[in-house]
Simulated assay, not measured.
Amino acid sequence: MTVPALLVLGNVNVDLVLGEVDGWPAVGTEVMVDRSEMRPGGSAGNTALALSGMKVPHRMIASVGDDPNGAWLSGRFDQASTEWIVEPCETTLTVGIVHKGGDRVFFTTPGHLLRASLENLIERLPEASGENAFALISGGFLMPGIEAGTIELLSALAARGWRTAIDPGWPPAGWTEGNKQRMFEWISAADISLINAEEAKGLSGQDDLEAAVGQLVERVGPSHTLVVKDGSQGAHAYAAGAHVHAASPAVDVIDTVGAGDTFNAAFLAALAKGRTTLAEALAHGTDIAARAISTFPRRYCGS
């Protein structure tokens, strides 16, 4: 069987999305919301769903729990594109509260993500199918076993011919000095890093995004591709001393949960085609993400 040019590794969990709320309610009160949706999620899960929605061949290797939520969750993905590692525990659940304007906050239970095993993942890694094959590691900060072994995982992927990308997300403990050092080590070992504007500011310790990006670009060096996703302002990419920006189409936002993961899917899918410029890949990412966050149920376009 031919291995697709896109490999997705990382966190998949059940998402329960509720909204919208206007401000944060007082403790002990009850709030009625207009909409709820139980859907498959997690950073890696959202990326795989977007790839399926775009009809882009891919493979995802991820874990679930052995409870009813795990059975429901795994059944929501394209089985031909997914390899599951079933853990003997409850499946992780994330509750996302959407605020007016599209911002959101997440509450996540530990569940199966705490048991995700580096060894189980590495032994399932396929050989890359060609020079434009990309492997993405998503949500590493939520999986202690993967977090501790990310350098080893990146090395194993490179040894199998994959070009590597990381989007570890926001560390639950915040941007401690240890987490900053760990992130920079991952960046040094990867080809591409995909972070959002708030993560860029947290990682750099700068409140101003322009200053944050300037510091990060100097730190990561010209051989690494740094992508910064900035919501309605679009996305930026920095590589080989060049800066590329793609504006985001103006849309009526329904909810932004998984927007960055959808961008990752479309951006890497464009690069995997080959003969695609960084600017074209960046624009493809912003276009697909904008469509996803402005449709319900979500729709994707492109290929």
Rank of each mutant, 00 (worst) to 15 (best):
G140M: 15
A148D: 13
G149N: 09
R160V: 04
G139N: 09
E152Y: 05
A133G: 09
L154K: 05
A165G: 03
F134M: 10
A165F: 00
G149Y: 02
P144N: 12
I137E: 02
R160M: 05
S155M: 13
G161S: 11
L154N: 03
A158C: 14
N132C: 04
E147S: 14
S138L: 09
L142K: 11
F141W: 14
I137Q: 05
P144S: 12
A133T: 06
G169Q: 04
A165M: 02
T164L: 04
I137P: 00
N132E: 12
A148P: 09
A165K: 00
L153F: 06
E147Q: 14
F134D: 00
L153Y: 03
S138V: 10
A159W: 08
G149D: 08
L157D: 03
A158H: 14
I151C: 13
G149W: 00
A159C: 08
A158I: 14
W170S: 13
G139E: 09
A156P: 01
I166H: 02
A158S: 13
L136Q: 01
F141T: 01
L157Y: 07
N132H: 11
G149R: 03
F141A: 07
F141E: 04
I151N: 10
A159P: 02
W162A: 01
G161P: 02
I166N: 02
A135G: 05
A159H: 13
I146L: 15
R163A: 07
A158E: 15
I151L: 14
A156M: 05
F134N: 01
L142N: 11
A148G: 12
T150R: 15
E152I: 07
R163P: 01
R163Q: 13
A148T: 12
A135I: 01
A156I: 04
G140N: 12
S138R: 03
T150M: 15
R163V: 06
W170A: 04
A135S: 06
G149A: 09
L153W: 01
G169C: 05
G140I: 12
L153P: 06
L154T: 04
A135E: 03
A158F: 12
R160P: 00
L153N: 02
F134Y: 11
D167H: 05
G161M: 12
G169L: 02
R163S: 11
A159L: 14
I137C: 13
S155Y: 11
W170N: 08
L136N: 00
S138D: 07
W162M: 04
R163K: 14
P168S: 12
G140L: 12
A133E: 04
L154D: 05
W170F: 08
R160A: 05
G161E: 10
L154Y: 00
E147W: 14
